[in-house]
Nucleic acid binder design. Structure first.
Length: 352
DNA sequence: AATACGGGGTA
DNA sequence: TACCCAGTATT
């Protein structure tokens, strides 16, 4: 009886060789393999949740400059952390990061998977990533890249989370767990991409069941997503583009950020009625309609009617507030109007 | 097991 | 437009 050779060691060797030659140089990959700086890795992993690396890079350096170590992060205000996170989305990440920094500043960094998992904002993926990259622990990550790479490798169109985790655990290099995790994610991000995979350049092509079917992009099947909900709201701009009345948003949506006082229209309600109710709450006097802004989020399409208003409420400096893209658009509405007022004489002068 | 939670990139 | 991104917390 000749045993069929176990393909896993060959597969590991092929991907790790590819990673050593073609892996990405990223700023959170400083230091020895398996002994990365836990602070740098942790911040990066939170920042990269549901965020593409190219985008995360834009925030990472600025964030580490503002908060060079966990002590600096713990000592900062939540609003300062949100300001550094401004525009990046999923702001609960920033709030949880700041909360966890307080815990770490008091208790020290966790030293293993379970310790990381106990921190706010750290789930199975992040705990596996940090414990493998910073502590050399043998924990297999399961993210969007891993899901796609393994679904294709094994030709599984509808992998469950448990199915992915089981395969990831079995494949994980016990010798270089951190490098293995980085390697699978790099492969998924640069070669085994969702729409146009570069199978000719893939070190796992010879092992890939999805490639053998001829339609690798059919794996995994698209996830069903919640429908986009249309939402209508009114906001008031009391002040100008530089200083305005701002409120801290509570609740889940954009929670913790500042923004123009806003009120969502209840069903059947008109913008005028909502404006009246909003101004009554603020003890403000409603003014003219400045315009509407459309803002698309993953799960909703917001139409915001922006009105001028007057009140004696204290104004805040817009530039130092942490604002969502939606509020920047609303403030931009006023800027555009001012620009057009200035633009007329300018156009008369410049006769190119 | 579903849903909420941002904003932007890619084909 | 459709689908996705180094997911987590809550319900």
């Amino acid at each position: 009886m000749t045993a069929v050779p176990d393909p896993i060691p060959r597969l590991r060797k092929a991907l790790l060789a590819w990673f050593d030659a073609s892996g990405r140089a990223l700023p959170w990959r400083l230091g020895a393999e398996g002994r990365r700086d836990p602070y740098r890795v942790w911040v990066a992993e939170i920042l990269l949740q549901q965020t593409q690396v190219a985008r995360g890079l834009h925030y990472y350096d600025r964030f580490l400059e503002a908060f060079p170590d966990v002590g600096a992060l713990a000592a900062a205000s939540t609003h300062a952390v949100l300001k550094a996170w401004e525009g990046c989305g999923y702001y609960a990440r920033a709030r949880n990061l700041h909360r966890a920094a307080g815990i770490i500043a008091a208790d020290g960094f966790p030293s293993d998977y379970g310790g990381w998992l106990a921190l706010p904002g750290v789930g199975p993926y992040t705990a596996a990533a940090v414990s493998s990259l910073a502590h050399g622990e043998a924990r297999a990550v399961n993210d969007g890249n891993v899901r796609r790479v393994l679904a294709r490798l094994y030709g599984e169109a509808r992998p469950t989370d448990a199915w992915i985790q089981a395969r990831a655990d079995a494949l994980l290099s016990p010798v270089r767990p951190g490098a293995w995790n980085e390697a699978v994610m790099d492969l998924g991000a640069t070669v085994c991409t969702p729409k146009a995979p570069r199978c000719a350049a893939c070190p796992l092509a010879a092992h890939c069941a999805a490639l053998a079917t001829g339609t690798p992009t059919a794996f995994p099947a698209p996830k069903v997503r919640a429908a986009v909900r249309a939402v209508e709201a009114v906001a008031v701009l009391i002040g100008n583009g530089q200083e305005a009345v701002l409120e801290r948003r509570g609740g889940g949506l954009l929670g913790g950020l500042m923004g123009l006082p806003t009120r969502e229209l209840v069903p059947q309600e008109t913008a005028a009625t909502a404006l009246e109710a909003l101004c009554k709450r603020l003890d403000a006097r409603p003014g003219e309609l400045l315009g509407q802004v459309q803002h698309r989020m993953t799960h909703r399409q917001i139409t915001l009617h922006v009105y001028a208003a007057a009140s004696s409420l204290p104004r805040q400096v817009v530039a130092t507030a942490a604002l969502s893209r939606l509020d920047h658009k609303a403030l931009g509405l006023l800027r555009t109007r001012q620009d057009s007022l200035f633009a007329a004489p300018l156009m008369g002068r410049s006769s190119i």
